[in-house]
Structures are given as C-alpha cells and as structure tokens.
C-alpha cells in the first residue's frame, strides 16, 4: 500500500508538470499582456511544487 500511495504521489507530480507545461505554452501563445502576467503568477506554485521546494 505504501508503494501504491507512492505511485499516486508520483502521478501528482506528473500532473503538476503537465499543467505547468500547458501554462507555459499558453503564456507564450497569448497576445493579451494581462493574461500573460496572470499565467506567470499561476505558474509559481506549479514550478515550486514540481521542484519539491514548497
């Protein structure tokens, strides 16, 4: 069970990475400056969680 829970946790990091990548992609694609700033702010928790900093 501990291993299974570990796999689930790994899946969450993968999920964070996936949405992080999509956020980055949208950031580079958007033509709206305000949206771009907001994408940056939203990216912060995704990146820091992925790096296991917070």
């Amino acid at each position: 069970m501990i291993t299974l829970n570990g796999l689930v946790t790994a899946a969450y990091y993968a999920m964070t990475a996936l949405f992080g990548v999509v956020l980055c992609r949208n950031f580079f694609r958007t033509r709206n400056a305000q949206d771009a700033v907001l994408y940056c702010i939203i990216l912060v928790p995704f990146v820091l969680r992925l790096l296991r900093v917070k």
Partner: peptide, 18 residues
C-alpha cells in the same frame, strides 16, 4: 483541449491563486 481548458479556467484558477 488541454490548452483550451487552461485558457478557459485562467480567471478561475487565477483568482484562487491570487
């Protein structure tokens, strides 16, 4: 679909983060 989802949710997720 992923890109559109994130784009559609930008205001919602944005407000929760902020």
């Amino acid at each position: 679909i992923l890109g559109d989802t994130v784009e559609a949710l930008l205001p919602l997720v944005g407000i929760m983060v902020v």
